Simulated assay, not measured.
Amino acid sequence: MSLREVIAQMRQTMASLGGEAAVLLQRLAARAIRGELRRLAGAGSRVWTPAAARAVVDRLRRMLVRLVAQLGAALGKALTSAAATSLADAALFFETGDRALLGHVLPLRPVAPTPAQIALAREGVFKASLGRFGALLVHAVEGAAVATVLLGKPHRAGVDHVALALRRTAAAHAWELQRIAETEASAAYNAAQLEVLLAQDVPGDRMMKRLVATFDSRTGRDSVLLHGQVRPVREPFFDSHRGHFYMAPPNRPNDRELMVGHRPAWGEVVVDRWPVAEDRRAAPAPAATRRVPGQAIRSAKNLRAGDVLAAPGRPRIASVAERGGRIEVRTEQGLLLYFAAGAAIGVLAAS
């Protein structure tokens, strides 16, 4: 198996983990809602009074609170599995690279965090996202109950109206569960990769990290620009399209970038050495760049030493060089950034 094949397998594995987690969350939500509505359907033919509406809303609110907790527990287990799979994939990646480029396999230093600890680091993020999903459903239930409470309808009709609103809202926002699951699976998978790289990064054997994008009809312009960016493992990647730094993918929701390691002993990294291009024609056209007062927009190839980038920390450029069709920018803080030659870059000032 070649490094290209290993990376393709890792990319497919990460996508499968996110897809499986999304299906699991959607099934849990559908089952919980269906079961509770079935129990509510057995209500009698009393009039749909404000008190009756409040009782139904309170019951559904408690069910949704339990549901969010169940979704969080299920996603936590899925992320633990994703992290464990990622650790095994990282070992295979380095074994394949060592054999191909060195002729022998170097021992991997152990990773301190367990897969469960890696997943736990994302708990606050995904619980907040799931909480917002639950709040949408609660809001739909409350709105439907209030809208019918003064119409004097039978209790069953009121319950049916609330149930319809809940089912429609859950169906309309099922994509949010998919987004949460896929984004968090990617985060756990790449976080485990980062832990492996950090464990190998020691004096005399520094480790690099490289971004690998997936090219298809969903690929965003930011991913096209970031593909192939190489950084020391303890320094962040830089997204010139969005203007922010991040240590490991994802750098936004639904981001499918993969991070892999690179030993300096393997030799120079060639940007497209392990390509993953399937359909580059599908990448969307560049979005219009919004001008900000006091900020000039300049193409990357026209950047000069002394320019101050409109990015967090306002880094000042120390040097600019063109390498392999990309612009290499080194800041005065020692940060190395890469841009496509025609990329629109915000500049605050120039010396």
Rank of each mutant, 00 (worst) to 15 (best):
M259A: 05
D216Y: 09
M247S: 13
P264T: 02
S217G: 12
R291S: 01
M207A: 07
R242A: 01
L258V: 10
R221N: 13
E257R: 12
F237I: 07
I297P: 01
W266N: 06
W274S: 15
V292D: 04
L211E: 08
P284G: 04
H244I: 00
Q200H: 08
R221C: 00
V269A: 02
D272T: 03
V260G: 03
R298H: 05
R256F: 06
R252I: 09
S240F: 05
R273S: 15
V212D: 05
A248P: 11
P236M: 04
D255A: 08
V224Q: 12
D205G: 02
N254L: 10
L197Q: 10
P249F: 00
R290E: 02
Q295T: 08
E257I: 12
T289Y: 06
N302F: 07
L258Q: 10
V270I: 13
G228Q: 12
E278F: 05
I297D: 04
H227C: 09
R206W: 13
A277I: 11
M208Q: 15
R256T: 07
R206F: 08
N251E: 13
D205A: 14
N254F: 08
P232T: 08
H244D: 03
W274A: 10
R221Y: 12
D216E: 13
L225M: 07
N254T: 04
M207N: 09
V196L: 09
P249K: 13
K301M: 06
L226K: 05
Q229A: 04
A296V: 09
V271C: 03
P232R: 13
Q295K: 08
R242M: 06
P236S: 03
L303G: 05
P275T: 11
V230T: 14
G204M: 06
G228C: 09
D222A: 01
D205P: 05
V270T: 07
E235F: 03
A282N: 14
A248L: 09
M208T: 10
M247E: 12
F245Y: 15
A213K: 12
L225R: 04
W274H: 15
R206D: 14
D279G: 03
E268H: 09
F245P: 04
A199W: 10
P250A: 10
A199C: 14
P293C: 05
V271N: 12
K301S: 09
D239F: 02
H241E: 13
M247W: 15
P232C: 02
P232V: 09
V270H: 15
P236L: 03
V260F: 01
R256N: 11
G294Y: 02
R281C: 05
V196M: 07
P249G: 13
G204R: 07
N254P: 07
G243Y: 06
M247V: 14
R234F: 03
L303Y: 13
D216T: 08
H244A: 00
R273K: 11
